[in-house]
């Protein structure tokens, strides 16, 4: 069970059961939809920008525990960050879940709980779906993104 416990840490199970920042965002000025055809995960990310800063960010959709918890923790992490900071965090998060992170995990804060994903390569797309979707929203590409 140890690798499984690394994957399904308490923080992740909690965010899956009680996702933060879940729902529509009325005065959002950016939206993007994400889709993971492998498991049917669907997510919509809403972002409200103030200048270069993410003033608010919320998400909606359905998916597995990893994708839902990842979206939830991501919204908590990104609120108040600049678009550039968000991009840098995504890169570090991606390195973390693909097992390429060699830095001090403490600087990643709560995102570090997703380190166990690297032992389950088929679940990497679940963890990164919300991040890909957010990047699409911030880039205002406007197209529906897919992990496939």
């Amino acid at each position: 069970m140890s690798e499984l416990r690394d994957l399904y840490q308490e923080v992740i199970l909690d965010h899956n059961k009680h996702p933060r920042n879940y729902g529509a965002l009325e005065d959002a000025d950016r939206h993007a939809e994400g889709h993971n055809p492998l498991c049917g995960d669907e997510i919509t990310v809403h972002v409200k920008l103030e200048g270069d800063k993410i003033a608010d960010i919320r998400f909606e959709g359905s998916g597995c525990a990893i994708s839902k918890a990842s979206a939830s923790v991501m919204t908590e992490t990104l609120k108040g960050k600049t678009v550039e900071e968000a991009g840098a965090l995504f890169e570090r998060f991606h390195e973390l879940v693909t097992g390429k992170a060699d830095e001090d995990l403490e600087t990643l804060g709560k995102l570090a709980v997703f380190g166990g994903v690297s032992e389950f390569p088929v679940r990497v797309k679940c963890a990164t779906l919300s991040w890909h979707t957010t990047r699409a929203a911030l880039n205002e590409s406007g197209t529906k993104i897919s992990t496939e």
Binding site: M1, L4, L7, Y8, C39, D41, G63, C64, V122, R123
Partner: peptide, 11 residues
């Protein structure tokens, strides 16, 4: 979610 079930069963 079924995907979580699949990972746990595989384990």
């Amino acid at each position: 979610h079924p995907h979580d079930i699949g990972t746990i069963l595989d384990n």
